[in-house]
Design a protein around this nucleic acid. Sequence first.
DNA 1: GAGGCGCGATGCGGGTTCTGATCGTGGAAG
DNA 2: CTTCCACGATCAGAACCCGCATCGCGCCTC
Lengths: 221, 221
Amino acid sequence: MRVLIVEDDETLADGLSVGLRLQGFTPELVTCCADAREALAQGGFSAVVLDLMLPDGSGLDLLAGLRAGGDRLPVLLLTALDQVRDRIGGLDAGADDYLGKPFDLGEVSARLRAIIRRAEGRASALLEWNGLRLDPSRMSGEMEGRELRFSRREFSVLRALIETPGVIVEKDRLEERLYGWQEGVESNAVEVHVHKLRGKLGAGFIETVRGVGYRLAEPRP
Amino acid sequence: MRVLIVEDDETLADGLSVGLRLQGFTPELVTCCADAREALAQGGFSAVVLDLMLPDGSGLDLLAGLRAGGDRLPVLLLTALDQVRDRIGGLDAGADDYLGKPFDLGEVSARLRAIIRRAEGRASALLEWNGLRLDPSRMSGEMEGRELRFSRREFSVLRALIETPGVIVEKDRLEERLYGWQEGVESNAVEVHVHKLRGKLGAGFIETVRGVGYRLAEPRP
DNA sequence: GAGGCGCGATGCGGGTTCTGATCGTGGAAG
DNA sequence: CTTCCACGATCAGAACCCGCATCGCGCCTC
């Protein structure tokens, strides 16, 4: 997940960058509004971590410009200014969030995930592969005219697989998806869910790659 | 999009102003009816956010005057909680929607967008799904010819669901809707309201998605 | 003071998920 | 080709969590 970090304090920027990378994000770093605009214009980001105080202007202006242009990209604001936080506090937009310095890295990534998830719910893009269509906002799927229902865990696994169809997803990564990269399970829970999914999707839809993980099968020509 | 905010509480006005700017609006701020009339006379606004209690009169009078003059400008009414009941009749005086304090900024901008779209003729004023029609300005609904009345909380929940029919709304989200941005208290209030709603709408209208939230059921063919 | 509403608490019921055991299988080594 | 081992598949039960239906209390409105 690519995340744009807009932060001019070098120490902070480095910390954020390393921290977010450890959490599975792919951070990209810019240090001023101008560079940020340029990067955003290229697209491909899932979210922005934005400092308020920047050398060439306020992050608020950057954000306002973004919104005025109709861009709904999730934005996490970093602010050292308590009064600003107070002014805005509690009135923050549903899609965005604010964090006052100093902050803890765990919280940054947690909130990032939260706002990204929300934004995805808004977009409600259909995921599709090999005759299966998934609707994340409904946690349901459709295959050959039949509607498929999934439990939360089942859906998480399937979604992780269908986001990169055909690509192998390591079992560890799937576990992360389910349990949030903090505590793993000590059992074959993932396998169980895969098994249930196979029951619903038919054998052969999910392939096993021994010793590595799972992937969705390529369509039969 | 220029929006006129008529609000005398400074904290609130600031918050609104900053928040709406973040959402891509161009807010303008006045603190009393007189200034509001002056600003409106100049035109160029897409909507008005209007507080009821103002130093030099009620926002209702302002609104009435506006409508009497034939102005159809979309108006979003802000009301303190305890005023809702008293003043709700005034919504028939021409407000397009209302919002009780405390409110969440995301909701303010969402509703602003909605009433602006509506004014441009691109959306209907009524929320409708599967035989149920909701009238936000009356907090009432209609189903199979019967009129349904809802309490404020019930209506909030139902409205949140019907705004994205068929889509799962997380319970956290529903709680946010009920309590504003505050930390959700430990309670099953949402469940209770859903229960009451089911009593009025019939079982099966609202579906439970275990571990996630609720959604309105798809119409049965 | 009656009634409606909102909130919190409770116990029950049932789905979901985890766990551990066992069985099946692929693949490399011999 | 056979054997063996490690990993995955399958299964059933247990544990857990969640949601449901109530109830009572407090508050506000009538």
